[in-house]
Every structure is written in structure tokens, then in C-alpha cells.
Computed example of a mutant assay.
Amino acid sequence: MAKAPSRTGTLVSTLQARAIERLWRTLAGRRLTTLWRLARLVGPLVHRFSRRERDVTEANLAHVYPESSPAERHRLARESLIHSSATMLEIGFAWMGKPERIETSLLAVHGRELLDEARAGGRGVIVLAPHFGNWEVLNFWLSSHFPFTAMYEPPKLGELDAVTRAGRERMGASLVPTNPRGVAALLKALKRSEAIGILPDQEPSWGSGVFAPFFDRLAYTATLLPKLVARTEARVVTGVARRIPGQGFEIHFLAADERVYSPDEIESATGVNACVEAAIALDPAQYQWEYKRYRKVIQEQEGHPEHRRFRIY
């Protein structure tokens, strides 16, 4: 039986949540120029003093860009952590800022015709939204323009659940749990020819994915997408909100790699990872490289493949 949290622990969590929410509300009214300046102060500090973030980022970059010099990868890691810091600082802006301010910050929308064409054909649309730029701004745009459903996992700090849900749902998005009930809700939305969002670069639990290449290295990748496509004939696009530092964001929708439509789960997962790679190519510094994308690996043991966790960072 799980141990109930102590009264002291509950109080600390509540105070932490209130402090974070207060910070978000304070930053919500700041100009993007100010938030970017803060990110340029915070990011280098994270790079210097947060060993975990720095080491994982640099390990990922060493694999993905082996032809780059160590100095180039060091610079890219630093810039990536600046952008990650900016995303965190912009949460209040995306969740609590006045909608007209956010609309004004959207400088351009590229590839909207991909969404319109799919919806005009009476099909649902699956938007693959990797951890690139500011995905909360992308959620704002999508839920402002279409009926939009996305999976939602409550934050570790449970006291922030209400404010997180309010921020993501305020423009009409429907959040569903990351369980079979949530998958059923996604299917229903697609059958109504609506749009849904999937994070394609989160590592799934064992049994919910397959190994597929991501930058030429096997990464455990979710197989939810081919299941949804097979049952709904939905169309797939990749969507990101690329940051224009200090000015705003440009929304990009990219055509999906055709392999995502394959009934073969490994082939489809390979296409999903190719979609993420294409989004990263827009600006590699804006991808969240500090995520441990390669935690799960395959080991061959006496001729039998075995799934195991490895400490490779």
C-alpha cells in the first residue's frame, strides 16, 4: 500500500505549487522580448550548473551530429537549453496571457492547407507535435481554430493540475487521459473528422511501442498512431510553433512521411521518427534535446531479443 503523504509534505507541495502559479501569472504579462532576455540569462546557468540537463543534451547531440566539432555541439547545447528555458518562461504567456496578445505573437502560419485539405475530405487529422519550440502555443492555435483533442498526463506536482488543465483547455481543447478511455476518445474525435494531437517523441511504456530508427539509432517509439490511422483513415501532419526570439512564433505544418500510413508498426514508427527529424531540421536549437530519448535499448542474449533499460547517459 502506498504511503500517504505527510502533512508537512503536503504543505510543502502546496506552497511550491502556489509559488509556481504566481510566477506564471507574473510572467504572463511580460513582453516576449523580456522573456527571451531572461531565457538568455537562465539557459547558460542551466548549462553550467545542471549536470543532468547538460550531459543528456550533449550526449544526444554527439550522436545526432557526429560530424560537428565539439565546440559546435557545445554551442548548440547551450542554445538548446536557452530555448528550453524560454519555453518554461513562456508557459504563463501561453496559458494565462490575453488571447489577443497571443494571436498577435503568431507571425505566420505555414502549411495550413495540409490541415484544410484533410478536413475538407471529411477525415480526421492527427497532428504530430514534437517537443520543439513552444508546443503550448501550438495547442493554443489548434484549439482556437478546430475542435481539438489531446492526451493529458497530470503534472507530478498534483496541486498544479487545475491550473494546467485550465491553461490548455481555455481555447476549447479537450484533454483526455493517457489510458484506454483516452484512446477511445481520440478515436471518436477522429471519426467526427476533428483534429487530435499526439506527442510523437515521448518514450512509451513497455508493450506500447516498437524500436525504430531515430537519427540512425534505435529508439523505443509509440505505436498508437498506426492503430488510430488503421481504424479511422485519418490524415497525419507534423505541427510546431517555431520561436522567433523576442518577437513571436511561426506555426509550421509539415506533410507527414508516407511511412506513417503503413500497417506495419515498425515501418509506421520509422515514419513518425522521420517526421520529428524533419521538424528538428527547421532549427535544431529549438528541440528539447535534454529528454532521454534512447533510454530503452534491445540486447541480444543467447539469440533472443530482450528489452532492457540501460544507463547510457
Rank of each mutant, 00 (worst) to 15 (best):
S144G: 15
L106V: 13
R243H: 10
Y313Q: 10
T149W: 08
K3Y: 06
A274P: 02
S6Q: 04
S193P: 05
L160H: 06
Y294I: 01
E103K: 11
G182N: 08
H145M: 09
I244P: 02
S268R: 09
L190Q: 01
G133K: 12
R73N: 02
K227Y: 02
P200K: 08
E159L: 05
N134M: 14
D264T: 08
K3D: 12
R217H: 03
G9F: 03
F249S: 01
A4E: 10
E169N: 04
T8Q: 09
E159H: 06
T33W: 08
I244L: 10
F253P: 02
R293W: 04
E302H: 13
G172E: 00
S105N: 09
N139I: 15
L254Q: 12
I126F: 00
E117T: 13
S174E: 10
E203I: 08
P154Q: 12
L23N: 05
K227V: 07
W289A: 07
E277F: 05
G158H: 15
L15M: 06
S262N: 13
I102V: 14
R311T: 15
R217A: 07
E233T: 02
A166C: 12
T221A: 03
T87K: 01
R123V: 15
N139P: 07
M151G: 10
S13T: 00
G133V: 14
A86M: 03
L190R: 01
L23C: 09
F132Y: 15
L61H: 05
G248W: 12
A185L: 06
R40I: 09
D264N: 15
A285L: 04
S268P: 07
R309K: 14
G43F: 11
N179R: 05
S85W: 00
K156Q: 15
I298C: 05
G197V: 07
P5N: 04
W289T: 04
I266N: 07
G172F: 04
P44Y: 08
V260I: 14
A212F: 13
L175T: 00
E21C: 00
G209S: 02
E302R: 13
S69H: 03
I244W: 04
R231M: 12
L160V: 07
